[in-house]
Deep mutational scan, measured.
Amino acid sequence: TEYKLVVVGAGGVGKSALTIQLIQNHFVDEYDPTIEDSYRKQVVIDGETCLLDILDTAGQEEYSAMRDQYMRTGEGFLCVFAINNTKSFEDIHQYREQIKRVKDSDDVPMVLVGNKCDLAARTVESRQAQDLARSYGIPYIETSAKTRQGVEDAFYTLVREIRQH
C-alpha cells in the first residue's frame, strides 16, 4: 500500500529536517529553504509493509500558489509548527483551512506536530497545542528532528489516521 503524505507549515519550522531524519536517519543542521522535494521510503507499520511517498513543501509565502496542487494529491498532512515560534503555531489554522477548502472536506487525515521540542526556549505550551488538536479532532505529537524523538511516531500516526479514514 502506498501513502501520499504531505508536510506543511511555516518556513523554518523543520519540515525538511523531520523528513530527512525519518528517511535518512540524520539531522540536517543548516537551513536551506525548500521549494519542493519528495522522498520515498518502505516501512512496516503495524505489520503492514507500506511505501511512504512524502512531499516536503515550501513554507515560504512566495510558493503558496503551489499549495493547491499538492493538497489535492496528498492523502494525509503533517501540519508542523516549531514550539519556539508562536507565529508558526498561529499559521497552522490557515494551512488547515486551505487543506479543507482544496479537499472540499472537513475530515482530512492530519496530525499536528510541534517540532524542536529539544529546545528550552518554548513559547507554545503543550497544552495550547493539545487544545488546538482536540478542537480539530486530530492527534498532537511533539518531535525533535535533532534527537529523533517522536519522528517515526508522527509519520506513522498519520498513516494510521489515513487507514482509519
Rank of each mutant, 00 (worst) to 15 (best):
L132N: 06
S64D: 14
E2P: 05
G11H: 08
R134F: 05
A10P: 10
T147A: 07
L51F: 06
H93V: 15
G76P: 00
T143S: 05
T19M: 05
M110L: 15
I20K: 04
D104C: 09
D106R: 14
I92P: 02
E125S: 10
Q128M: 13
A58Q: 13
Q164I: 07
V44E: 13
E30K: 09
M66T: 10
Q21T: 12
S16D: 01
S126T: 10
D37S: 04
E97H: 09
V8I: 10
G9L: 03
E152F: 10
L51N: 13
A154L: 14
D153P: 03
R134N: 13
E125R: 05
V151W: 04
K15D: 05
K41Y: 08
G59E: 02
C117W: 13
Q164G: 15
S64T: 13
D153W: 02
P109Q: 02
G137N: 08
Y156V: 12
D37I: 03
A10C: 08
G14W: 04
E30Y: 08
E30A: 06
D153H: 09
A10S: 12
S16A: 03
D56P: 01
A133F: 04
V108N: 13
D37T: 02
G11F: 11
V102S: 11
Q149Y: 02
K116W: 15
Y95R: 09
R127I: 05
L158V: 06
V8D: 01
F81H: 02
S105E: 07
R67A: 11
I83E: 07
H165K: 15
V7P: 02
Y63H: 11
Q24T: 14
H93M: 15
Q98M: 15
S88I: 01
D32L: 05
A133H: 03
F81T: 05
T86D: 12
D91A: 15
F81A: 05
R67D: 13
H93W: 14
Q60S: 13
I99E: 02
L55M: 11
I35P: 03
Y140W: 03
D106S: 10
D53E: 12
L78R: 02
S88Y: 08
R134K: 09
Q98K: 11
Q60F: 13
S16F: 04
K116L: 15
C117A: 08
V159I: 12
C79A: 10
R160S: 09
R127A: 15
Y63G: 12
Y95F: 07
V111P: 00
D91L: 15
N115C: 15
I162R: 08
S64F: 07
R148L: 13
V7W: 07
E61R: 09
R163V: 06
C79K: 03
F89R: 04
A133G: 02
D56Q: 00
G12I: 15
K15F: 04
D91V: 13
D153K: 11
L51H: 13
L158W: 08
Q24W: 06
E161L: 12
Y70A: 07
P109R: 10
M110W: 07
C79I: 15
I83M: 15
L5F: 07
V108E: 00
F155Y: 11
A133P: 00
K146H: 13
Q24L: 06
F81G: 05
M66P: 12
T34R: 02
H93T: 10
Y31M: 08
E75V: 11
Q149N: 06
Q164C: 05
E75L: 08
Y95S: 08
V6I: 07
E152S: 11
V28C: 10
V80Y: 01
Y39I: 04
E2D: 11
G150R: 06
Q42S: 10
G150K: 09
E142T: 04
D91F: 15
I92C: 11
L132T: 09
T123H: 09
L78C: 07
F77H: 00
E36M: 05
T147L: 10
E75F: 06
D106Q: 08
A58R: 11
G74H: 01
Q128P: 04
L5G: 01
D46I: 09
Q21Y: 10
D29W: 14
I92T: 01
Y31E: 02
Y31T: 06
Y63V: 09
Q94K: 15
T1Y: 10
L55G: 09
K103I: 02
G137F: 03
L112M: 14
G9Q: 02
F77W: 00
V28A: 07
I45D: 05
Q130W: 08
T157Q: 12
A133I: 02
D46T: 09
E36L: 06
D107H: 14
D53V: 00
D56M: 02
C50I: 10
R72Q: 06
K146F: 15
R163P: 04
D107Q: 06
Y136E: 00
N84V: 05
T143E: 00
V111D: 00
N25Y: 08
L132I: 12
S135R: 10
D56V: 00
E2F: 00
S64G: 15
C79F: 12
H26I: 09
A65W: 01
D29K: 09
M66S: 07
D32A: 08
R134M: 07
V159F: 03
Y63S: 14
R134Q: 12
Y3C: 09
E125T: 11
L158K: 03
D106C: 06
S64Y: 15
D46Q: 11
I23A: 10
T157V: 08
T147Y: 07
T157I: 06
T1H: 08
L52E: 04
Q128E: 10
R127M: 14
M71L: 14
L52N: 01
I83H: 14
